[in-house]
């Protein structure tokens, strides 16, 4: 034992000059990944829509190949070679490959190209000029719409936070009566969250009627409400998951019912986080209500869409500047409140 350890110690200075290297990844798996890349190349070739062709003159015969898939294949193989050279593990190499494939597919689906920008620039220039020269006198004329937007955001935030808190209490396994309830509420919540806010707005406009029927704000509030419930319930239930178990155990030991325990042991712990989520949601609501105007739920978004459809970009720019100022103010206000609370 002793002799070997001294031998090791004597060998150590020589060994220290050789820097440790990561183990060489399995070449077979890398070959499989290359095969995957070729497979993806064939798929890209089959589904490609553009007819660009790459001609490869070899002297005696001219090979042709589809341009974009070949570029994709080359990129994939080069990436694999670099990963192999850098001795990156096979899982990470697979991740890189999947990333390239996904990007290729997405780029092909949306028809990604930047070549059309120069010829289309003339369309954009007058709009940009108009945005740089806003119609300042217009800002004050839409104050009623602003009132509606902010009121919608306030109501949706307060009601949404209240419902979201209750749902979060049922969704977190720490505070819910049993595991079944928690799983069910979590599933319901992820369904609520997966429908985008504009989807909710379209639904409620269809259910109860939009601006045309004088019902715009109601539909908008309901849409924002669902949007808020999803976010607040998810974030708050994650906060409840991470709550300090001491007070909960103390409440249990002293014979508290579930409601008493949640009220006295959990709520005070999650309250600061909950309030800060509420403030963030309020900010999101103001921004979202500008977007929801297009589907007819009233507020500043409707005014903005009206001006956009009339191509009066000076007025749009005025509304936009007011929007930026309001969002920044809300941001600062919520930062102030959070600093006071936390």
């Amino acid at each position: 034992m002793v002799t070997t350890s001294t031998a090791e110690r004597r060998a150590a200075p020589q060994a220290a000059t050789v820097r440790p290297e990561p183990p060489r990844p399995s070449g077979l798996v890398y070959l499989g990944l290359a095969g995957l890349a070729v497979l993806a190349f064939i798929v890209f070739w089959v589904i490609q829509e553009s007819g660009d062709v790459l001609l490869i003159p070899l002297g005696f015969v001219t090979l042709w190949a589809p341009l974009n898939p070949v570029i994709g294949l080359v990129v994939m193989l080069v990436a694999l070679a670099v990963c192999f050279k850098a001795r990156i593990g096979t899982m990470a190499a697979f991740g890189a490959l999947a990333f390239i494939m996904m990007s290729y597919w997405a780029g092909a689906t949306v028809g990604f190209t930047l070549l059309e920008i120069p010829e289309r620039w003339s369309n954009v220039e007058p709009r940009l000029m108009a945005f740089l020269d806003p119609n300042w006198s217009y800002i004050w004329t839409v104050r009623d719409q602003w009132l509606i937007t902010i009121s919608m955001a306030v109501v949706a935030t307060l009601v949404g936070c209240a419902i979201g808190l209750v749902l979060a209490m049922y969704a977190s396994p720490v505070s819910s009566p049993n595991k079944g309830t928690s799983q069910t509420i979590k599933a319901v919540n992820s369904v609520i969250r997966s429908i985008p806010d504009v989807g909710w707005a379209l639904l409620f406009v269809a259910f109860i009627g939009g601006t045309a029927h004088g019902l715009g704000p109601m539909a908008g509030i309901l849409a924002l409400l669902m949007f808020n419930i999803g976010i607040v319930a998810k974030l708050t239930s994650e906060t409840i998951d991470a709550v300090n178990p001491g007070p909960v155990e103390a409440a249990d030991a002293s014979g508290a019912t579930l409601t008493q325990r949640n009220r006295l042991a959990i709520l005070p712990q999650v309250l600061p986080g909950f309030v800060s989520y509420g403030l963030y949601v309020f900010e999101l609501n103001i921004r979202a209500s500008a977007a929801l105007g297009i589907v007819g739920v009233g507020g500043i978004g409707s005014a903005m869409m009206l001006q956009l459809n009339r191509f009066q970009f000076e007025n749009v720019a005025a509304i936009l500047i007011a929007l930026i100022v309001v969002v920044l103010l809300v941001d600062m206000f919520s930062m102030y409140i959070r600093r006071k609370l936390l």
């Binding site: 028809g111 059309e116 289309r120 369309n123 954009v124 709009r127 921004r287 297009i294 936009l320």
Partner: peptide, 27 residues
């Protein structure tokens, strides 16, 4: 962060990229 996506889309991107080769203005 304060400007909604929709404004970028309407004001700049739709005229800049048009409705694209694939149609529908995905780009």
């Amino acid at each position: 962060r304060a400007v909604p996506e929709i404004i970028f889309a309407i004001a700049i991107m739709l005229p800049l990229f048009g409705f694209g080769s694939g149609g529908g203005g995905a780009l």
